[in-house]
Protein backbone atom coordinates (compact mmCIF):
# COMPACT_ATOMS: atom_id res chain seq x y z
CA UNK A 1 0.00 0.00 0.00
CA UNK A 2 1.17 3.49 -0.82
CA UNK A 3 2.40 5.68 2.03
CA UNK A 4 0.28 8.58 0.83
CA UNK A 5 -2.11 8.74 -2.08
CA UNK A 6 -3.53 11.94 -3.47
CA UNK A 7 -6.25 12.54 -6.04
CA UNK A 8 -7.06 16.00 -7.26
CA UNK A 9 -9.31 17.59 -9.88
CA UNK A 10 -7.31 18.37 -13.00
CA UNK A 11 -6.98 22.10 -12.24
CA UNK A 12 -3.76 24.16 -12.25
CA UNK A 13 -4.41 25.55 -8.74
CA UNK A 14 -4.08 22.09 -7.19
CA UNK A 15 -0.62 21.38 -8.59
CA UNK A 16 0.97 23.44 -5.82
CA UNK A 17 -0.82 21.33 -3.20
CA UNK A 18 0.58 18.18 -4.81
CA UNK A 19 4.10 19.68 -4.71
CA UNK A 20 3.82 20.56 -1.04
CA UNK A 21 2.43 17.14 -0.05
CA UNK A 22 5.09 15.30 -2.09
CA UNK A 23 7.92 17.34 -0.55
CA UNK A 24 6.60 16.80 2.97
CA UNK A 25 6.27 13.03 2.52
CA UNK A 26 9.69 12.84 0.80
CA UNK A 27 11.30 14.67 3.72
CA UNK A 28 9.74 12.25 6.20
CA UNK A 29 10.87 9.30 4.08
CA UNK A 30 14.48 10.45 4.41
CA UNK A 31 15.11 11.98 0.99
CA UNK A 32 18.14 14.26 1.29
CA UNK A 33 17.30 17.91 2.02
CA UNK A 34 19.39 19.00 -0.95
CA UNK A 35 17.21 16.89 -3.26
CA UNK A 36 13.83 18.06 -1.95
CA UNK A 37 13.80 21.03 -4.35
CA UNK A 38 14.20 18.59 -7.20
CA UNK A 39 11.39 16.38 -5.89
CA UNK A 40 9.12 19.42 -5.64
CA UNK A 41 9.93 20.54 -9.17
CA UNK A 42 9.70 17.08 -10.74
CA UNK A 43 6.32 16.33 -9.12
CA UNK A 44 5.05 19.74 -10.21
CA UNK A 45 6.12 19.06 -13.78
CA UNK A 46 4.51 15.62 -13.82
CA UNK A 47 1.25 16.96 -12.34
CA UNK A 48 1.22 19.95 -14.71
CA UNK A 49 1.56 17.56 -17.62
CA UNK A 50 -1.25 15.34 -16.31
CA UNK A 51 -3.55 18.34 -15.72
CA UNK A 52 -2.85 19.52 -19.28
CA UNK A 53 -3.60 16.08 -20.72
CA UNK A 54 -6.90 15.83 -18.80
CA UNK A 55 -7.98 19.35 -19.69
CA UNK A 56 -7.11 18.98 -23.36
CA UNK A 57 -8.85 15.63 -23.53
CA UNK A 58 -11.93 16.82 -21.62
CA UNK A 59 -11.33 14.16 -18.98
CA UNK A 60 -13.17 14.73 -15.71
CA UNK A 61 -11.35 12.05 -13.73
CA UNK A 62 -8.87 13.24 -11.10
CA UNK A 63 -5.09 13.15 -11.43
CA UNK A 64 -3.56 10.56 -9.12
CA UNK A 65 -0.31 10.89 -7.18
CA UNK A 66 1.02 7.87 -5.32
CA UNK A 67 3.88 8.43 -2.88
CA UNK A 68 5.59 5.26 -1.71
CA UNK A 69 8.25 4.92 0.92
CA UNK A 70 10.32 1.79 0.61
CA UNK A 71 13.34 0.52 2.48
CA UNK A 72 16.04 2.41 0.65
CA UNK A 73 14.05 4.45 -1.81
CA UNK A 74 11.14 6.79 -2.21
CA UNK A 75 9.01 6.81 -5.31
CA UNK A 76 6.34 9.03 -6.74
CA UNK A 77 3.98 7.96 -9.47
CA UNK A 78 1.80 10.53 -11.20
CA UNK A 79 -0.97 8.92 -13.22
CA UNK A 80 -3.32 10.37 -15.78
CA UNK A 81 -6.29 8.87 -17.59
CA UNK A 82 -5.72 10.51 -20.95
CA UNK A 83 -5.73 7.87 -23.68
CA UNK A 84 -2.80 8.04 -26.11
CA UNK A 85 -3.31 7.37 -29.76
CA UNK A 86 -0.74 6.27 -32.22
CA UNK A 87 0.98 9.17 -34.00
CA UNK A 88 -0.74 10.08 -37.25
CA UNK A 89 -4.25 9.46 -35.93
CA UNK A 90 -5.07 13.11 -36.26
CA UNK A 91 -6.51 14.37 -39.54
CA UNK A 92 -3.86 16.30 -41.46
CA UNK A 93 -3.94 20.02 -40.71
CA UNK A 94 -6.46 19.72 -37.85
CA UNK A 95 -5.67 22.10 -34.96
CA UNK A 96 -2.05 22.04 -36.10
CA UNK A 97 -0.46 25.06 -34.37
CA UNK A 98 -2.29 24.70 -31.11
CA UNK A 99 -1.40 21.03 -30.94
CA UNK A 100 2.26 21.83 -31.62
CA UNK A 101 2.38 24.43 -28.84
CA UNK A 102 0.90 21.92 -26.41
CA UNK A 103 3.37 19.28 -27.45
CA UNK A 104 6.25 21.73 -26.98
CA UNK A 105 5.19 22.55 -23.40
CA UNK A 106 4.69 18.88 -22.67
CA UNK A 107 8.19 18.13 -23.94
CA UNK A 108 9.71 20.95 -21.92
CA UNK A 109 8.16 19.45 -18.77
CA UNK A 110 9.53 16.02 -19.61
CA UNK A 111 12.93 17.56 -20.38
CA UNK A 112 13.01 19.11 -16.91
CA UNK A 113 12.00 15.82 -15.28
CA UNK A 114 14.62 13.78 -17.11
CA UNK A 115 17.24 16.44 -16.36
CA UNK A 116 16.41 16.31 -12.66
CA UNK A 117 15.66 12.70 -11.89
CA UNK A 118 18.01 9.82 -12.68
CA UNK A 119 15.41 7.11 -12.22
CA UNK A 120 12.33 7.91 -14.34
CA UNK A 121 9.87 5.64 -16.09
CA UNK A 122 7.32 7.10 -18.49
CA UNK A 123 4.51 4.88 -19.70
CA UNK A 124 1.50 5.64 -21.87
CA UNK A 125 -1.28 3.55 -23.30
CA UNK A 126 -4.87 3.69 -24.45
CA UNK A 127 -6.15 4.01 -20.86
CA UNK A 128 -3.75 6.72 -19.76
CA UNK A 129 -0.17 7.17 -18.76
CA UNK A 130 2.11 7.58 -15.79
CA UNK A 131 5.44 9.00 -14.75
CA UNK A 132 7.23 7.11 -12.02
CA UNK A 133 10.22 8.76 -10.35
CA UNK A 134 12.42 7.23 -7.70
CA UNK A 135 14.97 8.73 -5.32
CA UNK A 136 17.28 7.02 -2.85
CA UNK A 137 16.73 7.64 0.85
CA UNK A 138 19.09 7.75 3.77
CA UNK A 139 17.66 5.75 6.66
CA UNK A 140 17.46 7.82 9.82
CA UNK A 141 20.08 6.84 12.35
CA UNK A 142 18.91 6.59 15.93
CA UNK A 143 21.56 7.87 18.26
CA UNK A 144 21.48 6.15 21.63
CA UNK A 145 22.22 8.22 24.71
Amino acid sequence: MATVELRFSALPEHVRTARLVAAAVARRAGVDEAVLDEVRLAVGEACTRAVGLHQNGGITAPVKVVLTEEEKQFSIEVGDEAPRHAPGDRAPGAAGDEQDAETEEDEMGLAVISGLVDDVEVTAGEHGGSIRMTWPTTPSVTVLP
Binding site: R19, G44, E45, M108
Partner: peptide, 9 residues
Amino acid sequence: DFLDSTGLG
Protein backbone atom coordinates in the same frame (compact mmCIF):
# COMPACT_ATOMS: atom_id res chain seq x y z
CA ASP B 1 10.80 30.89 -4.87
CA PHE B 2 9.74 28.41 -7.50
CA LEU B 3 9.91 28.20 -11.29
CA ASP B 4 8.76 25.37 -13.54
CA SER B 5 8.64 24.68 -17.26
CA THR B 6 5.39 26.64 -17.65
CA GLY B 7 7.26 29.69 -16.35
CA LEU B 8 10.15 28.98 -18.71
CA GLY B 9 7.64 28.80 -21.57
